[in-house]
């Protein structure tokens, strides 16, 4: 087991702990901008704006939780 452990690579997270807060803020900001745009625009193309808004909010929420110390 020891040899196997040595030959394995240490886990590296997608975003390091220091960057959780800035990444979360940027993503949430993007989410708010796109959703603002969505609510101002009632044409069918608004749903295309909802896609990046939801995605940014979704990832932003995960990093925001991590940034405040609730490691999900």
């Amino acid at each position: 087991m020891e040899i196997e452990w040595e030959s394995m690579s240490p886990f590296a997270p997608a975003v390091s702990k220091d960057l959780h807060a800035p990444v979360a803020l940027v993503l949430m900001a993007i989410g708010f901008i796109f959703s603002g745009n969505f609510f101002l625009n009632k044409s069918p193309s608004a749903l295309l704006v909802a896609l990046p808004a939801s995605a940014a909010f979704a990832f932003g929420a995960v990093f925001l939780m991590c940034a405040v110390g609730v490691y999900v």
């Binding site: 969505f38 009632k42 749903l47 979704a58 929420a61």
Partner: peptide, 22 residues
Amino acid sequence: RKPLVFFTGLMSLFLVSWLIGK
């Protein structure tokens, strides 16, 4: 899984709000 669940939930909210707006 976690972001996908959020994404799905938000996307349906947007969709419902768009439908109500119609």
